[in-house]
Amino acid sequence: MNSSSSVYKVAFIGCGKRAHEHAIGVQTDSRLKVVALSDISAASAETLNNEFGFQASIYTDHKEMLEKEKPDVVLICLWTPLHLPVFRDCAEAGAKAVLCEKPMSATWGECQEMGKIADEFGCQLTFSLQRRFAKGNQTVRRFIKEGRIGQVLRLDLYSPPNLLDCGIHTFDQAISYMDETPAKTVLGAVDTTEIYNWFNVPSECGATGQILFANGVQASLYSGSIDTWEPSQDMTKIWAGVRVIGTEGFIEVMWDGQIVKGINYDDPSWKPEMELSSMSDQMIGYVRHAIDCLESGEEPEASHQKATRASEIIFAVYESVRRNARVELPLTGVTDSPFITMLNDGQFAK
């Protein structure tokens, strides 16, 4: 933070679509002043600059930008394989906080490495798990704490393909509902009928599995095209989100906090209202909270520690496929992406 003012100097690395969504959150926080934009396409940086009126300096080399501008806060909006090396550059350049696009990284070892760098340099690292700031998700967390559905017994987890890029939202949503309880064991399978490639990382087209959390809650995982599941009419409404089943009822919630249904067995009149949150609302909450925590020293709601817990489940699913066995967590002895290793070894050849 600049000693002469209460404003943080902000820089973007990567100025594509997601940068525009992050910029909405940055623009509404008076503590933040965007001083620099970096992208290998100067035109992309200019577009972002003009759309938000940042009047920032434009760079095509992020290392040059970090050296000259010395930003306090950096937003990394790049493809997945670039997250680790660019975050390392930011931490070494003295950035106090980095808000990075999810997922963390393409391999489990790199996810852990990002956390180690953050801790070593004292750089606050968060990932854009902005759905934690959706009004409906905040309400569901409150309902669960109040015991509206009794003691949580089981979770049904739904995600579009693929686990690395989409499943992280579902796992993070589930973990947040259980007061950050980590997973204990994972048993998984993947569908490789098609191989997708999102942000330069190959992935499965579907997955399923069983997860046991440390608090004893059992979870079933469904990931992929919902048309192939032949689910009941109610289940078709949840293609991305969580069904929480308790001793006294259940609640069904989409990713962005849309409550599809809530039932209390003893109180049929209980009907939780739908609370809609736009992506803009969520990004505003995410950015503001990250800066609040930078000032207070508290762990952010979307901290790298929390992103790591969700990421661990993803790589444990892949490792379970490799071992043909249930995997105990914490996940040790794994640094690669088991899925990518098996794919490269021809294990999924038709």
Rank of each mutant, 00 (worst) to 15 (best):
L331R: 01
Q55G: 09
D29S: 10
T193D: 04
V321N: 03
F54C: 00
A349I: 08
V321I: 11
V217Q: 06
W108I: 06
R142T: 12
W198G: 10
A316N: 05
Q218D: 10
T335N: 10
L155M: 03
Q112W: 05
V190F: 02
L78R: 08
F315M: 06
G206E: 10
W229S: 06
I144W: 14
P268A: 13
V242F: 01
D72A: 09
G206Q: 08
G257H: 09
G209Q: 00
W255P: 00
G147H: 06
A42M: 13
A310C: 04
H20T: 14
H83G: 12
C90F: 04
R18P: 01
D267G: 08
D165L: 10
Y177D: 07
I58S: 14
R31V: 14
A45L: 05
S6Y: 00
I175S: 00
G14I: 09
F250S: 07
E295I: 06
G333T: 08
V35E: 04
A325L: 07
A42K: 11
P268I: 13
P71Q: 07
I144G: 07
I340F: 07
L37W: 12
K306Q: 01
V201A: 12
A174E: 04
E252W: 11
G262P: 04
E194D: 14
A310E: 04
G257Q: 11
R309Y: 04
H83V: 07
Q282V: 06
E301D: 02
I40Q: 12
G53M: 04
N324M: 11
A56Y: 12
V287A: 07
I226T: 09
S44F: 09
S223C: 15
F213C: 02
L329C: 13
S303K: 11
T170V: 02
F171K: 03
T193L: 04
K102R: 12
D234T: 15
V140M: 03
V26D: 11
K306A: 02
Y318V: 11
G346Y: 13
A310W: 01
S278V: 11
